[in-house]
């Protein structure tokens, strides 16, 4: 049997820290903005209705508007950082996904541990031709990777690539 068991030089192993991450599609930022616009429009209408029908609230109107504006600025700023932090990479043997604003979180799944792959198209994402790639393992929902904002065609390719890898590994 041709079997060797040399000591590994762990310092020369490929390092996940040095991987160049691909940012997600720039149109995805628009998707995020539209979703947030809808949410804030609903909240704004609710506040407007309150202002119109409840006399007592008129005095506080200015504070409500200020709070809403602050919330909008804060949320949009936060999601902008979140958007620019998101990135993915497909290496020869594993897939990496990085995200997180306060903490930088890197998730790594080796191809031979992937159970299945799914494509998900949200209603607004579809307008921009974007899709979400979902990668599942046997490690429970927390260990799954969801990469949003990938062009539909590219997402299909990624799915095919992963399916091919899974089959080969089996």
């Amino acid at each position: 049997m041709d079997f060797t068991n040399e000591t590994l030089d762990t310092t020369n192993l490929p390092r996940f820290e040095e991987v160049q991450f691909t940012p997600i599609h720039k149109d995805y930022w628009k998707v995020v903005l539209i979703v947030e616009a809808i949410v804030f429009a609903v909240v704004g209408i609710a506040i407007g209705a309150l202002y119109y029908f409840q006399q007592e609230f008129r005095d506080y109107g200015i504070y409500l508007v200020a709070a809403l504006l602050f919330a909008i600025v804060f949320t949009v700023g936060f999601s902008r950082i979140s958007f620019s932090k998101k990135g993915f990479a497909f290496r020869e043997h594993d897939v990496l996904y990085r995200d997180g604003v306060i903490a930088t979180h890197t998730m790594i799944i080796p191809y031979n541990r992937i159970q299945h792959v799914a494509l998900h198209e949200g209603a607004i994402s579809r307008i921009f031709g974007l899709a979400k790639v979902e990668i599942f393992t046997a490690g429970g929902s927390q260990s799954d990777i969801e990469i949003p904002g990938i062009e539909k065609e590219q997402a299909e390719n990624i799915k095919q690539l992963l399916m091919g890898k899974i089959r080969k590994e089996l």
Binding site: T106, M107, I108
Partner: peptide, 8 residues
């Protein structure tokens, strides 16, 4: 199955 690292 999967590994994750994170850093504040």
């Amino acid at each position: 199955q999967a590994l994750s690292v994170s850093q504040l």
